[in-house]
Design a binder for these strands. Structure first.
Lengths: 216, 216
DNA sequence: CTTATGTTAGTAAATACTAACTAACTTAGG
DNA sequence: CCTAAGTTAGTTAGTATTTACTAACATAAG
């Protein structure tokens, strides 16, 4: 009890690159929970276990930190997508194509709900990178689906629908379920209790039977 | 130049109820644009053309003002829905049922984009009335659709799908389009340039051909 | 005159960001 | 191997603004 110091215990020293990543990670959670304006740099520093000044050593402004996060998340999501889309690209098993995509989207947002919240917050708050962020996710998927549908129409397997509208509808159908789950988890609002797999199956079947050419 | 007063010109006197409504209206716009945390009471006062203190004469706290707005918007939306759902309730023209609902939803959000933004912000920011707000809109519609689908399955007109999932999918399909339009208006993200009517037709047809029993 | 509607001028706390200092790790020279 | 110098990661203690909210006063309307 010799020292009456009320200051913080010095944080364990970390390599700059590690600390930076840790700050990004902590800030991601907070921004995703409370949005840009609802998150303070003090809060971020506290959670990271460092003093506020350290934040500004790594990022010139709060905005820059936010941008770094979006940048990071964008790349992460892009990679995830690429790897998945590649493998499902050439096969012409419609059920598998739509089904695995639906399951994948549902699972991604179930595992990492911060992603969807960040996406929504950034769109609402009009962040400069919001567009890019959106492009890298929903839009890329949608374009992929659009091309597939276009091809299958050409094949004569699908009805002659508007591929853009159909693609966005499919993605929208799925993402809306994901949204409800993310936003209203553990409330009475989300009253559908199905596993991602079951949900994906139902959604795919619903969509498929709409777009597949009818037997006559 | 007789008076060097730097103060504001006194606002024109209004009846309390009118001023209250005006504040709600101005604040709605700002909250919808910038969210709760991104909007200051000073900003609201300035836009309303009164001093900040007036805001607090009518609403004890900023939160209370926000709640009043959600309350107002909830009622407004509920009425709009009721009137529409009543008229489309008993008829069994599936195309008209889904089509008019789709058109209605798209038009509502096109005419008043603040509504969707408020809804999304309140959900993300976890406002206490967010649930209720959501219930009064998407959920009420969804339940209506769910009942309709259930009935038509019983009639033998629809396939035996999960009514909850189908209803939410239909609503989700539509609301996702509305969201993209509201959030990314005038950007390259929203690349589908269709009138609400055209969009509603395509969405309905897409959904219908999925849920209607196939001819054999 | 009384009451309702307005303003002014604050306050305490919070917020993004900075300047100046300190301790820990790394490494070069003896 | 040992130590001194340099570098990097940390802290403290601020600052100027902003923010939600209040008390006390002013004036138009009936």
């Amino acid at each position: 009890m010799a020292s009456t110091s009320t200051g913080r215990a010095p944080a364990t020293r970390m390599a700059a690159v590690d600390r930076r990543q840790q700050i990004v990670s902590v800030a991601s959670e907070l921004f995703s929970k409370n949005g840009f304006n609802g998150t303070t740099t003090k809060e971020i520093a506290d959670r990271a276990g460092v003093s506020e000044a350290i934040i500004f050593r790594h990022f010139p402004t709060k905005q820059a930190l936010y941008s770094a996060i979006i940048d990071f998340k964008t790349k992460q999501s892009s990679e995830r997508l690429q790897s998945h889309l590649k493998e499902a690209a050439s096969r012409k098993d419609d059920l598998a194509f739509f089904g695995s995509l639906a399951l994948d989207l549902l699972e991604v947002h179930k595992k990492d709900p911060t992603f969807m919240r960040l996406l929504m917050f950034s769109a609402l708050e009009g962040h400069e990178l919001a567009e890019m962020f959106y492009q890298s996710t929903a839009r890329e998927v949608r374009n992929h689906v659009r091309r597939y549908i276009k091809q299958r129409i050409a094949d004569g397997a699908f009805q002659n629908v508007d591929p853009s509208v159909a693609a966005r509808s499919f993605v929208g159908m799925i993402l809306y379920h994901a949204q409800v789950r993310v936003l209203y988890v553990d409330t009475s609002v989300d009253d559908i209790r199905l596993s991602s797999r079951q949900m994906a199956e139902r959604l795919t079947s619903l969509f498929m039977n709409g777009i597949c050419r009818r037997r006559r």
